[in-house]
Design a protein around this nucleic acid. Sequence first.
DNA 1: GCCCGTCTAATCAACCTTGACTAGACGTTT
DNA 2: AAACGTCTAGTCAAGGTTGATTAGACGGGC
Lengths: 213, 213
Amino acid sequence: MGEFAIETRGLSGGGRVSATKLLVLGIVHLSGGAHGYQVRSELQSWGAEIWAKIKPGSIYHALKKAAADGLLTEHAEPGNSGPERVLYRATARGRDEIVELVRDGLRRTHDPTMLDAAIAMLPMLTRTDAIAQVNERVARLEAELVEQAKGWENPNPDIPEHVRDQAELWAGHARTELEWAKSLSKRLSEGAYTMADDPGSWRTAPGHLKMPV
Amino acid sequence: MGEFAIETRGLSGGGRVSATKLLVLGIVHLSGGAHGYQVRSELQSWGAEIWAKIKPGSIYHALKKAAADGLLTEHAEPGNSGPERVLYRATARGRDEIVELVRDGLRRTHDPTMLDAAIAMLPMLTRTDAIAQVNERVARLEAELVEQAKGWENPNPDIPEHVRDQAELWAGHARTELEWAKSLSKRLSEGAYTMADDPGSWRTAPGHLKMPV
DNA sequence: GCCCGTCTAATCAACCTTGACTAGACGTTT
DNA sequence: AAACGTCTAGTCAAGGTTGATTAGACGGGC
């Protein structure tokens, strides 16, 4: 009998997507290995503590969890100068996981934090893959706008008037995102950014972000 | 070498704001007393489980927490037909808390879920108060757009190109929200919705949403 | 030399969220 | 009449998030 009868979902680690996880894994990988404080500093310099609302405690937790899940390895370092610290490095499974998380974040609507995180890690994907995921997002947004317009015709009378009016705001956000996603797709097609399959990417030059230790 | 200096900033305000708390308190109050399943059903009919991503477990937790904090009272009811249930009723402090949460949610930017929840509970405020809060939001959004435009002139070179491009998306969202907030302010000024100081509001006719028990 | 603030680095308990599970009542299909 | 699904109503343990706190090193003023 198969001991693991339960079907594992697309993303390992139980399934629940998390922008924290993606950003932390991504920074560790792009830095070619990092300890907690380094991840924290880098995220802050990107402004991620503002737009992704990540707090230091969550970063350390995410690192430990990812290490327990086999996505990172832990290397304890004695504190020659300053406190002790732990160096984390991405495993092969960890790199695969990042790619899956970015693909998911680009497609998934109604999750702005995850989208922001995915954009931050965009160069983890090949150019054609990134374009495909962004186009999928465009398609989903268009479908949702059509759906929402249909609901506008015969509204649910159980919902109070002011709650129904929220729909206007959501539709506005969806249209904004739609245009932005289209322009991102176009920029990618025109060769913007250094993607995973371009010369000078993390694949050919890992550790290009490596920070002073 | 303060190259990666981190500012530890303590956000003012005692308890962390929560859309769940606002919606649960609000539904209990508007229903003139309700048990958990009733709150859950009402939120679902408003589509709140989709746009606020609230799950049943969180509702029961929020009810218990609010009762422990003195914002709701608990009345155990024997299960004459069906399982036992607990009836919750808003206290005076609970009502004050809802009003404060709505005011906060209307002003606070960068928290779409809280805004949605605040809009759902908009009639808890008086008309002039609601207009003031929405106008404050307009002012904040305008200030943030100016700030963001300034940052666009001389960008931080530490941030990768694609991360800087996120700013375009967030600016788009801010402009969408700005126009929407202005139109909401205008609608309120023109007398739309039944607000707390209007005849027929929860103040003069509590329990107008009361559901069959 | 000593004190003070800041930087580096991380831990911890309290709190919130969530998927999974329990259990009775009621209708209806076999 | 037994089996089955569904609705009502809620509990619980596992896991993620956060503010508070700890602790050594380092530079600058007194």
